[in-house]
Computed example of a mutant assay.
Amino acid sequence: MPVVTDRANVPEFFARYQPMIDTALRSELARYASDIRTTQRYHMGWADKNGADIDATQGKRLRPAMVLLGADAVGGETRSVLPVATALEYVHNFSLIHDDIEDRDRFRHHRPTLWVVWGEETAIVSGNSMLKLADRSTRALCEIGVSLGVSLVAQQQIAQAYMRMIEGQYMDIAFEDRNTVSVDEYLSMIERKTGALIETSLYLGALVASNGNSNGRVPDGLRRAGYEFGRLFQIRDDILGVWGSDETGKPVCGDILNKKKSLPAIHALNSSTGKAAAQMREIYDREELDDRDVQSVLKIMDEAGTYEFCESMSAKHWAAASEIIDGLDIDERIRKDFFDLGEFLVERSS
């Protein structure tokens, strides 16, 4: 069975941007005078379930970092895009809270998920209010000197992105009740569920930082690169959901146990033949799976070359992203940051 090892170095620009991102996220939530905030501080990794300050694992903050990287790509002021970075990270966390309920995931970053601690009803409300925090954050753009026109475009783009993300989540849930899902259908789903926020992060970082004064080539190019990065991110997530270690903060082989129609399952269901195909379908038709089922699925995937297929898909989209980045008229230091980002997304282990 393939085992994913950690070959990735976290890109340097993550550390460069994290202090600004963390301050902006905390400041926005601090303005929310509600008891719900305790649940949100817990989810964000800033507090325990009693509200006491802690410093737990807080995720990669990928999307806000990509917003700031987009701003640097056009030579803009990174602080001008912090409202966008904050908004997109809260939209993302709104989706994570709901996603944990829908997937029945009991752990995230090695801690019980919000719904496990407070119940589903509270988790739904907490997630919904995070979405409104995002809306409030974008309204601050005009206050820091971004033009009204660009501010309205940013708000519209973020709203469209989270509607596409929700549509992708709906497709993902619908796949669970289907016996067959094609790879093309899967790609259509992930470009919404995962890709929408990622491509919007890069595009709006460049657009807002330039205050609409760029020639459009760099923002548009970053949107196209973000499209490929979104696919890269989700394909790697799917690989980790089957062959990853407990570094992910979730159960090993959790996607098999949950019968997720992720890329490995879709490939194995579509490409296995004979007895293996029948066994694969029979296992995924069961109400619950056990460790023996997981081992059977892993054996079928191994025989079908599923891991190699997923890696080849990842390489294909990284090649497409690399070509776009090569063609951008940007500073070479920033170009290196983009290549570091792509290699991280391809090789990360958590």
Score class of each variant (00 low, 15 high):
I97K: 03
I54W: 02
Q40T: 13
D53A: 15
A71G: 05
G45D: 10
Q40S: 15
G59S: 03
H92N: 00
L62M: 10
K60T: 12
K49R: 14
D35E: 06
G45L: 05
G75Q: 05
Y42W: 11
R79L: 12
P64T: 07
V67Q: 09
A71Q: 10
T78S: 15
A33D: 10
S34C: 07
E28F: 12
G59L: 07
A65W: 12
I101P: 01
H92Y: 03
A73E: 11
L82G: 09
I101M: 01
R37W: 10
M66H: 13
G76K: 02
S80N: 14
K49M: 05
Y32F: 15
D72A: 15
T78Y: 13
K49F: 03
E89G: 09
H92P: 00
E89R: 09
S34V: 11
T39P: 11
V74R: 01
K60A: 01
T57E: 14
R31S: 08
L69E: 10
E28H: 12
I97R: 02
E28Q: 14
G51V: 08
I54Y: 00
R63P: 11
R61W: 01
F94W: 08
K60F: 07
R31G: 11
E89K: 02
N93C: 03
A65C: 11
E77M: 07
A65E: 08
R31F: 05
L29V: 09
L69T: 11
I101G: 02
D72M: 07
W46H: 01
R37A: 15
A71R: 07
H92D: 00
R79M: 13
D99A: 03
S80V: 11
D35P: 07
R79P: 06
G45E: 09
T57K: 14
D55K: 12
I54F: 00
R61L: 12
M44H: 08
P83R: 12
R41Q: 14
L88F: 00
G75F: 01
T39L: 14
T78K: 14
Y42N: 02
H92C: 00
P64G: 02
H43V: 08
A56W: 06
D35K: 11
Q40N: 15
D99C: 01
A30Y: 08
H98V: 00
E28I: 10
S80D: 06
L29S: 10
L82F: 12
A65Q: 12
A52C: 15
M44V: 09
G75D: 10
A56E: 06
A47F: 05
G75E: 09
A87P: 03
K60V: 06
R31T: 11
A71V: 08
A33F: 06
R41F: 02
L68K: 13
T38G: 05
G76A: 02
V84F: 14
D55L: 04
V81R: 13
L96Q: 06
F94K: 00
W46I: 01
T86N: 06
L69F: 14
T57M: 15
T57V: 13
T57H: 15
T86L: 03
A30W: 03
Y42V: 06
N93Y: 05
